[in-house]
Nucleic acid binder design. Structure first.
Lengths: 150, 150
DNA sequence: CAGCATCCATGACGATACTG
DNA sequence: CAGTATCGTCATGGATGCTG
């Protein structure tokens, strides 16, 4: 999702990485995992999917609800999601036009998987924050007392 | 995860977005979801977690298996994962040193959630690719025949 | 209302060189 | 072996202005 245009394939170096998980080849040849992350790993995709998961919304509604998103990024991200078949765009021929965005069945599937990750984030981020605190503490200590702890 | 240093809090605009999913507030105040995505949405974190999920590995092993990663990014990403408490770093005092990376219990939890998403990617990415093809087709058609379809 | 086009700042990432 | 430091590049994404 670069600025404006779409990248056809994108570069991807060979990651050998065979037989990682309990199943067969996890990303093997062209690594679908990386492809997916390139898509939904951006700043707004998951937020939009999540929001649309709660019901269809219009462009301006989305813009209002996801405060902080520029309409450039909203538009751009929606287009990418539409292109990927995760979000459907329906144009109501009113005047001025009304555009309704909804999650496709395919997008709904992904959303289901994402929600597990999101739930984990909700419950476990405090522990992550705590771990960060401990880490930074250790770093600071080892920096302020490099040789003699006096 | 910027270049070298760590960002303390990072800017985040208020996303109102209350009561999206079936549960309570999904990202509300400081949006743990975005925090998580900022962490694992990068180019290598998930790959590393996945790889370590298959067993503990040394730095050079990781570097070998994830072909395409620079040792700067590998080191940087591992440090971020360690700081977040998702990966553990154990130093074997041999000579020269041996460093073993492993997934922590917390990281293992996340990995479980991630695998669902990864499995979805593995099985559904072909459909995403197909959707992309259809979309691009539509675009090209509407560009080459703007007014009169002859 | 629902966008697209353009400009520009930041920062993610890769390449390279050096270290305990 | 397992890193750190520095530099350059290019993409991500915000701000602004215009359109059907």
């Amino acid at each position: 999702m670069q600025d404006g245009t779409f990248s056809p394939p994108g570069h991807l170096e060979e990651t050998d990485v065979a037989a990682i998980s309990t199943r067969g080849d996890v990303f093997a040849a062209d690594c679908p995992t990386r492809r997916l992350l390139d898509r939904i790993g951006d700043k707004w995709s998951v937020l939009i999917l999540l929001l649309l998961g709660g019901g269809d919304l219009r462009f301006s509604e989305l813009k209002r609800r996801i405060r902080g998103v520029s309409q450039k990024m909203l538009s751009q991200t929606l287009r990418a999601l539409e292109r990927d078949g995760l979000v459907h765009r329906r144009v109501e021929p009113t005047v001025p036009v009304t555009v309704i965005y909804s999650v496709t069945p395919l997008g709904g599937e992904l959303l289901g998987a994402l929600r597990l990750m999101i739930d984990w984030a909700e419950t476990r981020m405090p522990e992550v924050a705590a771990a960060q605190g401990r880490y930074d503490q250790r770093i600071n200590l080892s920096h302020s007392a490099p040789h003699a702890p006096n």
